[in-house]
């Protein structure tokens, strides 16, 4: 049975359900349940639900150690940027230990954080920095864009035997949607086709999925049918679904809340350019955040971000362009 709950509640629900299901799941982080009255503490006790100091390196490294010893930690990191002070543990320990040990060990840990809080939080708390994690084989990246996915991807992240950066988009936390009750998982590496269309493929993640769908509605009024694909996980990345869509539409617009250079959309563009070139009738186009630090003031912040108009405009441009020379 599904019922409508907010995205943020879906995440919490997944953690609770998985903790009930598997006693090896532990959950900790800064400000996680400082009060003993907290429902998670009430349900699972202080041993499995802990509040930890502002020591990201130790918090994340400890998760790696818990995982090596058979537990499934979920570390609450609040904002993706806070992982940056512990970059060694996130990218240089967690994803590499299995490989370097010749497969002897595994690191089933979830690094849970929010990103993209372009709501006036200025330069250090608004980044959409998931793209940088794509360069670390061994590290998975989940970016839920709906409440149901928020739950299902968290459950999968917890059950996955590898380190996962599970990144919620802070702009979506209060979005409501149908979420199945009880145990519910969404597989990694399977993109969701949020809208089908035959004229152009739009790939978007997180908050930009909604912007892309809104743009698609506008375009539908003009007789342009856009297919909107949400990869849901960037690693593993479902390139097959994207490529087959591009085969059908011949046009690709990539939307990314992150910056343009070195980002997720650039990686997807490269995959399609290499493996889908003959399908393309026009150059691939990207609608990304500008290559600047996100400014505080509202009009400037809006200027930097992708939005419906920019996406629709880019689609029109791509469809109007000359075919790619074969």
């Amino acid at each position: 049975m599904a019922r409508e709950i907010p995205y943020i509640a879906a995440v919490q629900e997944a953690i609770r359900v998985e903790m009930e299901r598997d006693p090896s799941v532990v959950f900790y982080g800064q400000d996680v349940a400082p009060s003993d009255e907290d429902p998670l503490v009430q349900a699972f006790g202080r041993e499995r639900v802990r509040v930890s100091p502002i020591s990201e390196t130790a918090e994340i490294g400890m998760a790696v150690g818990l995982a090596l010893a058979g537990y499934r930690p979920v570390v609450e990191l609040l904002m993706a940027e806070f992982m940056l002070v512990a970059m060694n543990q996130v990218v240089n320990e967690a994803p590499r230990l299995r490989y370097m040990s010749g497969g002897q060990v595994k690191v089933p840990a979830v690094f849970k954080a929010g990103y993209g809080f372009t709501a006036g939080w200025a330069g250090q708390h608004t980044g959409s920095i998931y793209g940088m994690f794509m360069g670390f084989p061994g590290l998975k990246i989940a970016l839920p864009s709906t409440p149901a996915d928020a739950k299902g991807l968290m459950a999968t992240a917890i059950r996955d035997d590898n380190p996962v950066c599970y990144l919620i988009n802070y702009l979506l936390v209060l979005e409501h949607g149908d979420v199945p009750e009880g145990e519910y998982t969404v597989p990694f590496g399977e993109a969701a086709v949020r809208r089908s269309g035959s004229d152009v493929t739009i790939v978007a993640t997180g908050w930009t999925v909604g912007r892309a769908l809104a743009a698609a509605e506008t375009l539908a009024g003009e007789g342009i049918e856009a297919e909107v694909i949400d990869p849901r996980t960037l690693n593993p990345l479902d390139t097959a679904t994207i490529l087959s869509s591009v085969e059908k539409t011949g046009h690709l617009v990539l939307v990314d809340q992150g910056t343009r250079h070195g980002g997720a959309s650039a990686v997807i563009a490269a995959e399609v350019a290499e493996h889908g070139f003959t399908s393309l009738k026009a150059p691939i186009a990207q609608v990304t955040a500008l290559d600047v630090t996100v400014p505080y003031s509202e009009p400037m912040e809006a200027f930097v971000l992708p939005n419906e108009e920019k996406i629709a405009g880019k689609v029109r441009q791509v469809l109007g362009e000359a075919p790619v020379a074969a």
């Binding site: 006036g120 330069g123 400014p295």
Partner: peptide, 23 residues
């Protein structure tokens, strides 16, 4: 308007700035 509440800075008065990231 670039920085906001968390990122005040006034080097002319010796205030070299802040970090929004703890520590």
């Amino acid at each position: 308007g670039y920085g906001g509440s968390m990122h005040l800075v006034d080097p002319s008065r010796g205030f070299l700035g802040t970090s929004g990231i703890v520590g």
